[in-house]
Computed example of a mutant assay.
Amino acid sequence: MPLPAYKRVVLKLSGEALAGDLGYGIDPKVIFSVANQIKEIVELGVQVAVVVGGGNIWRGLSGSSKGMDRATADYMGMLATIMNSLALQDGLEKVNVPTRVQTSIEMRQVAEPYIRRRAIRHLEKMRVVIFAAGTGNPYFSTDTTAALRAAEIEAEVILMAKNKVDGVYSADPSLDPNAQKYDKLTFLEVLNKGLGVMDSTASSLCMDNSIPLIVFNISEEGNIRRAVMGDKIGTLVKGE
């Protein structure tokens, strides 16, 4: 049986991916699908950390663009990621995958505070660790959280799961029928071309710490396993 290409990964889930076809909120069918896909790679011996966005509930940038204080709007977004993380934890534990949620904003009644060494210990014991509440600071995205946590726990790759988009394109494929899909990119190309894979802070963190990124469509069952096994799916973004 072939071995996984990676032993420790960070899975980055957008909030929109958890909304599924509902477009807003949390779709239990999507939670169930994602939980089963994560279970599949845990059973292969892969250590899994997850970072979840909150765009299906609240977007800080959207709130600030309508006049709300940016820091307040971002803190509300962090709380949205905690709701998503608890929903995903529930889904994982329903399929018998031991899971811990760690939050950057302390709320001991619902989750552990983020402690790097404790997170690594959980991973070594084959527990899935979900990092919630972003970095705990306004003005930073959950993409930056994924890059930061991946560097801290020494993950080998970030798996960036997108909803209904199977990689990185030269333009929005839903708007431009001539948009070109990239199989491979460097982080410098992502930054120079303004491709919007992740924000510039996150891209720079990945580039500086040599953390590759695989962008793929999570809507297709089994894609997380394919990415972990090293199959050519989506778009691979790495250093020079």
Score class of each variant (00 low, 15 high):
217 N>P: 00
146 A>P: 05
191 L>I: 15
112 E>R: 13
199 D>G: 11
30 V>G: 06
57 I>P: 05
7 K>W: 00
229 M>W: 09
44 L>F: 03
174 S>L: 13
36 N>R: 15
132 A>V: 06
121 R>D: 14
206 C>E: 03
161 A>K: 05
90 D>M: 10
233 I>N: 06
110 V>M: 12
179 A>H: 07
89 Q>C: 04
214 I>Y: 00
238 K>P: 05
210 S>H: 14
234 G>S: 11
100 R>M: 11
134 G>V: 10
213 L>V: 15
117 R>N: 13
157 V>S: 03
78 M>A: 05
16 E>Q: 11
122 H>P: 02
22 L>S: 13
107 M>S: 12
116 R>V: 02
228 V>F: 07
93 E>W: 08
18 L>V: 08
191 L>Y: 07
209 N>A: 09
110 V>L: 14
183 D>K: 13
211 I>V: 12
216 F>Q: 01
220 E>M: 05
219 S>I: 02
41 I>A: 05
9 V>P: 08
114 Y>H: 10
108 R>F: 08
96 N>C: 08
34 V>E: 02
201 T>D: 11
54 G>W: 07
233 I>E: 04
169 Y>L: 09
187 F>C: 08
227 A>E: 01
101 V>I: 13
39 K>R: 15
178 N>H: 13
88 L>G: 10
187 F>S: 03
192 N>S: 15
146 A>Y: 02
227 A>P: 10
18 L>F: 04
19 A>T: 01
196 G>Y: 11
68 M>S: 02
223 N>P: 05
32 F>Q: 14
96 N>F: 14
6 Y>C: 03
115 I>W: 04
55 G>S: 13
42 V>H: 06
224 I>L: 14
87 A>T: 12
135 T>Y: 09
214 I>A: 01
232 K>D: 15
179 A>C: 09
174 S>N: 14
52 V>Q: 06
236 L>T: 13
76 M>L: 14
3 L>H: 10
135 T>F: 11
153 I>D: 04
4 P>F: 10
136 G>Q: 08
192 N>D: 15
73 A>Y: 06
13 L>Y: 09
201 T>W: 01
228 V>S: 03
103 T>P: 00
227 A>Y: 12
89 Q>E: 13
56 N>S: 09
125 K>Y: 06
206 C>M: 11
58 W>F: 15
126 M>C: 00
190 V>R: 06
